[in-house]
Amino acid sequence: MAWLEKLLRSKAVVVTLIVLPGLWPAWPLLRHDPTVLADPLKYVLHHLGFVACLLLAIVLTFTPLRVLFPKWGIALALNRHRRLVGVSAFFYAALHFATHLLYEGGFRVLASDVTKPFLISGLLAFAILLVLAVTSLHAALRWLGGKRWKNLHRLVYLAAALAAYHQIYAQKLFPMQVVWIFGPVIVLEILRILRQRRPKLTAAATG
């Protein structure tokens, strides 16, 4: 696994892994898949939203993995790219939002969007990711101070919850896909919280 760890430490490799799913829609379009060509923009819209959710879920696994497996090289390698992956999630969300505007025929659709929980949840998640992306710069960290910055960036969990809601309600029936994407995050977060609680509990007991 040392080779995988080495690969994942490389920024170029991670950037490639992030960019490739964005190019994926070109494949059915070039193949002239009639189902995709029937409404190509809808396909692109859904695909970009899916990648945004996936990257958001992936980046949220990094910290719990490091806490749970502090000596696992791959977890450490992944944690080098937290900002990159997080900003990429925002980037895909921005492309998804832009596609939504194009699909719906311009900004005036926002007036109708804000009356519908399904669309409000997506807009809010996007707004949070926008703030987090802007404040991901070192200058913002210095300006805010570590503690405030950290509290602000905890909003990512709210963004993830909103994104999951948005993804569930993008379908007429509950899509199992959401469970595969966000389920692991929830499991890892619970394990991480349990792990981080334990020392405190023992300290309280002995103290």
Binding site: D39, P40, V109, S112, K116, L119
Partner: peptide, 18 residues
Amino acid sequence: VDHPRWSQASERVIGAGV
């Protein structure tokens, strides 16, 4: 009358392209 998740005021035409 809107759908709870989207407007029904307009529609995409299948086959009309991007």
